[in-house]
């Protein structure tokens, strides 16, 4: 009896260990890597990514160029630090770089994700792909990872382009603090665009037509980019109307509600986060009363403090991205291969 029990134990742990190894070997050298590599190859050789890159690149760089002109004209007069950061945030005749990226980023994410699954399904490649010895989630994970890697590459190159051109145009090298802030900005942007990528993939799982998936994505994008903020204001005004003789509590409550409702939108979260990260003089994101600033010494926040200020925003953005992807993942795993 006893020897048998002793023999049994290692066998059980071995099979458990084997299963873990089997699982991890499929992460490192298996289906996920193959799918991801193929998707990246598709993106890099395809025309779609090139168009998106040119769109964001050209608009972004031209707005940066105009911004740099403004900086050159004014930098001598004002005694202002953070010239390098202002390359990203200064607007001339065009909106600033960050505004373009913030507006076009969702389009990039959606365009990369909207046909991820529905495209495979309609081309008849999905059943062929899934009949290969890979886990089903390797397909959707590989596509999301490949898309995120491409976004990282895109934002990294854009950041370097702006930095390099800015250096030539203004001649002011970045400080270490500025580099940290710009890196943080780029990482947050990748997360934000990855949210839209995940949303695109979600719609590509739900819809049976790539066009419906794209339209649904664009609808959500426009809603968050344009209407969410208006709607937040409208709701706040309905419940807490700020009339001429409204007491200050009502005005304050109106502002707080508007802010809180607005922050349900990932776009608002993202914009608040990047403005804070790229502008060290922003010290608070909510409404403040005059007596609160009384006696405050004007100054700049350190990168760590700026990051702390928008930490909830960043956590929310990561959570939203993960949440949307989790829904897409779940639906895809449970889905019938055939329509």
């Amino acid at each position: 009896m006893k020897p048998a029990a002793v023999q049994d134990t290692p066998r059980v742990t071995a099979s458990w260990w084997d299963r873990i190894r089997q699982r991890t070997s499929s992460w490192s050298s298996g289906g996920l890597g193959v799918v991801c590599a193929k998707e990246i190859a598709d993106h890099t050789t395809g025309i779609r990514f090139l168009i998106l890159f040119l769109l964001v690149g050209i608009t972004g760089l031209s707005s940066m160029y105009v911004g740099a002109q403004t900086i050159r004209d004014t930098v001598a007069q004002e005694d202002s630090p953070y010239v390098f950061l202002r390359l990203f945030t200064t607007s001339g005749t065009l909106p600033p770089f960050i505004a373009f990226v913030s507006f076009l980023g969702p389009l990039v994410g959606l365009a990369m994700g909207f046909d991820a699954i529905v495209g495979e399904r309609n081309r008849g490649t999905l059943s062929r792909l899934l009949s290969q010895p890979i886990y089903r989630d390797d397909v959707i994970n590989g596509k999301f990872l490949a898309g995120t890697a491409m976004l990282g590459w895109m934002m990294g190159s854009l950041g370097l382009l702006v930095a390099g051109l800015g250096l030539i145009l203004t001649g002011v090298p970045p400080t270490g603090e500025e580099v940290v802030r710009v890196l943080a900005y780029l990482v947050v942007t990748v997360i934000y665009v990855a949210f839209w990528l995940a949303l695109g993939i979600l719609f590509s799982v739900i819809f049976r037509q790539a066009a419906s998936s794209a339209l649904a994505g664009i609808a959500i994008w426009l809603f968050f980019a344009v209407f969410a903020r208006l709607l937040a204001g409208l709701i706040a005004d309905t419940f807490f109307p700020v009339t001429q003789d409204a007491p200050v509590e009502v005005a304050l409550r109106n502002a707080r509600w508007q802010l809180a409702l607005g922050r349900l939108s990932p776009t608002v979260l993202y914009e608040e986060a990047i403005i804070t990260l790229l502008n060290p003089s922003i010290r608070t994101l909510g409404p403040i009363l005059l007596e609160q600033v009384e006696g405050a010494i004007a100054g700049f926040l350190s990168p760590g403090q700026s990051l702390l200020l928008v930490w909830p925003h960043l956590v929310s953005l990561v959570a939203l991205t993960a949440g949307v992807f989790a829904v897409a993942y779940y639906l895809f795993i449970r889905q019938e291969i055939r329509a």
Partner: peptide, 28 residues
Amino acid sequence: AGYLPDNVGFYEDMTGRENLRYTARLNR
């Protein structure tokens, strides 16, 4: 098990050889 689905589809921009190569990679 090798499977030929009804209405089989391929990646249109890839060559026949590249499509098979992808399958070979997925099979390690």
